[in-house]
Amino acid sequence: MGGLETKAIVEINQLANQYKSSIVLKVGTRFIDVKSILGLSITLFSNQVYQLEIHGPDEAEAKHAMEELFNKHGLPLSED
């Protein structure tokens, strides 16, 4: 894992932990809790399109912030 990848994982994890909402990343048939740095570290850079599923009291804010961060790191999100 390179420096940029590590930075992306840490930034995504830290941002997710600022929200009360559940933030799950769907990659293929796997579901990863974005608040789990271990889950992210083994999943994030598998050259896939990712889908965020966010549910909770601050989901609109969390979704907007997570989408911006994924875009910043060049990680494609599906529109589903």
Rank of each mutant, 00 (worst) to 15 (best):
G39V: 13
V24R: 03
I9A: 04
G28I: 02
N17P: 05
V27Q: 05
L38R: 12
V24P: 03
T29A: 09
Q18Y: 07
I9H: 06
I32P: 00
I23E: 00
K26Q: 05
K26C: 00
T29V: 05
E11N: 15
I23C: 00
Q14H: 14
Q18V: 08
Q14K: 14
A16L: 11
V10H: 11
D33S: 08
N17C: 08
I23K: 03
R30C: 02
V10E: 08
S22I: 01
S21T: 00
A16V: 09
S36F: 15
S21E: 02
Q14P: 06
T29C: 07
N13A: 13
D33L: 08
I12A: 06
I37K: 15
L25P: 00
V10Y: 12
I9W: 10
A16I: 07
I37F: 15
R30M: 06
I12L: 14
K20T: 11
R30I: 07
V10Q: 09
R30K: 09
A16F: 11
K35V: 06
K26H: 07
F31R: 03
G39T: 11
E11R: 13
I23W: 04
D33P: 04
D33Q: 05
L25Y: 03
K20M: 10
V10L: 12
L15P: 08
G39L: 14
L15W: 13
V27R: 06
E11T: 12
I12F: 10
I23R: 02
D33E: 09
N17H: 06
L38N: 10
Q18E: 15
I9Y: 11
I32R: 00
S21G: 06
S36Y: 14
L38M: 15
I12S: 01
A8N: 11
V24G: 04
V34G: 03
Q18T: 14
Q18N: 14
K35W: 14
S21V: 06
V24F: 04
K20N: 12
R30D: 08
K35D: 04
G39N: 13
Q18I: 05
K20C: 09
K35A: 09
Y19T: 05
V10D: 07
N17I: 01
V10R: 12
E11A: 15
I12T: 07
I32L: 03
L15K: 13
